[in-house]
Simulated scan of single mutants.
Amino acid sequence: MKARLLRIAGRVQGVGFRDWLLREARTHGISGWVRNRADGTLEALLAGEEDALNAVLTACRRGPPLARVERIEESFAEPPAGPGFIRRPSA
């Protein structure tokens, strides 16, 4: 299992991005979480098999219909402690 921590910038808050990512992650069997950050970015921890992880990472570059992704900062991370994908409170 591989894991990535993402910081997604652009028009990513108030456009349904977290709910969209929740559905994408669950569809692909990805574990982790997503949350809004006070600086206007979105942060997500994604963990899963490489093919599924790459599919969700590719989808994040587009985002949901109302979003406008300007950049994604991606770093390697430790997988989450538990299974499933959740929405975390904003940070």
Rank of each mutant, 00 (worst) to 15 (best):
M1P: 07
M1L: 11
A3R: 09
A3V: 06
R4K: 15
R4D: 00
L5M: 14
L5R: 14
L5Y: 08
L6C: 06
L6S: 10
L6I: 08
R7L: 12
I8E: 07
A9C: 13
A9E: 15
R11E: 11
V12Y: 07
V12R: 11
V12H: 09
Q13G: 04
Q13W: 10
G14C: 04
V15P: 10
G16E: 10
G16A: 13
F17S: 01
F17R: 03
F17Q: 04
R18D: 01
R18L: 07
D19P: 00
D19A: 13
W20C: 10
L21H: 00
L21A: 07
L22G: 10
R23C: 01
E24L: 11
E24N: 02
A25H: 06
T27M: 07
H28I: 00
G29T: 02
G29V: 03
I30V: 04
I30S: 02
I30C: 04
G32F: 01
G32V: 03
G32A: 04
W33D: 02
W33C: 09
W33F: 12
V34N: 06
V34S: 07
R35Q: 13
R35S: 12
N36E: 11
R37F: 00
R37M: 13
R37S: 13
A38Y: 05
A38C: 00
G40C: 04
T41R: 09
T41S: 13
T41V: 03
L42G: 02
L42M: 14
L42T: 11
L42Y: 03
L42H: 02
E43D: 05
A44Q: 02
A44H: 00
L45C: 02
L45P: 01
L46F: 02
E49S: 08
E49G: 13
E50L: 14
D51F: 02
A52M: 09
L53W: 01
N54R: 13
N54W: 03
A55D: 09
L57H: 09
L57R: 05
T58D: 14
A59F: 02
A59S: 13
A59Y: 04
R61M: 08
R61E: 15
R61V: 00
R62G: 09
G63I: 06
G63T: 06
P64F: 03
P64G: 05
P65N: 05
P65M: 04
P65D: 06
L66F: 11
L66H: 11
A67I: 05
R68Y: 07
R68K: 14
V69Q: 03
V69A: 06
E70T: 06
E70P: 02
E70D: 15
E70V: 05
E70R: 11
R71G: 14
R71I: 00
R71Y: 00
R71H: 13
R71C: 10
I72W: 10
E73D: 15
E73A: 14
E74L: 10
F76K: 12
F76P: 03
E78H: 06
E78W: 00
P79S: 10
P79N: 08
P80F: 07
P80W: 07
A81C: 08
P83F: 07
P83V: 06
P83A: 15
P83L: 15
P83D: 15
P83I: 01
G84C: 01
F85N: 08
F85G: 04
I86L: 05
I86P: 00
R87M: 15
R88A: 15
R88E: 15
P89M: 05
